[in-house]
Design a protein around this nucleic acid. Structure first.
Lengths: 132, 132
DNA sequence: CGGAATCCCCCGTGATACTG
DNA sequence: CAGTATCACGGGGGATTCCG
């Protein structure tokens, strides 16, 4: 990374999606938005993620200017990750995505329940809409 | 597809991201938001996308309830894709992503220009990693 | 915390099929 | 024939696992 060959997309939407694309990035951001967090904290908050992957995702977000990294020269070395201004600007967007995701889940689950009553799980088959 | 094993994520954010994830989905949505479009139209608007992939992405978005599909039994077979209510609800979110992407592009490019004046293009290197 | 091997999914190419 | 949809195949990148 930091590789000139791996440039971000030109279209703003795709660029934004690319930046927040990553198995754990939204979750990490969720915690970091709340305030500075050190690595061990994040690790404890998300037990299902490997330390390597966690650091990996943090590194990428750092390169993309979403989070900042501060190293404290204390006895037990200490590293804190904080959200940058640019990163914080992403919070409302992620919240919007979250809300839409909830609505989507509700509506889709409703359809799934209805689908249980009918035969086929796929509605795309018996569909001959001959509208004019 | 329509495979019960491939369920969407539980977390709303990830669910939303998963649904709009796809090389061409944002672009397709952009056009479909403007009004009903038939396949050949979309193909003409986006020359760089293959017919197969186009149909693929449309199918997925249909299964996810983002777009609707209408088949007209005319002389040359005709199919129109339209945005659903749920799909339209996504428009402001995509716009927000777009705006943030623009800002991100501006700020990042500024940093890149500054980096030209300094020595190292990578800031992640000379960082005292004293963690074990 | 880095590197290598691995798996799997996304996407692209080209050819083919179906329907009036 | 024109428009729509599908299939067989292959490459590439992200994510996971194991090892040092």
């Amino acid at each position: 990374m930091a590789d000139p060959t791996k440039r971000l997309p030109k279209l703003p939407v795709e660029r934004a999606l690319k930046v927040i694309a990553g198995r754990w990035k939204p979750v990490i951001l969720y915690y970091v938005f709340d305030g500075p967090k050190r690595l061990s904290e994040l690790k404890r908050m998300m037990p299902d993620i490997t330390q390597k992957v966690l650091i990996q995702q943090l590194r990428e977000m750092e390169e993309h200017g979403l989070v900042g990294r501060r190293v404290f020269a204390e006895v037990p070395a200490r590293v804190e990750y904080t959200a940058t201004e640019l990163g914080l600007a992403l919070e409302p967007v992620l919240l919007a995505l979250c809300r839409w995701g909830q609505r989507h889940a509700e509506e889709q689950n409703e359809l799934d329940e209805l689908a249980d009553c009918i035969v086929h799980p796929r509605a795309s088959q018996a569909r001959a809409n001959t509208a004019a």
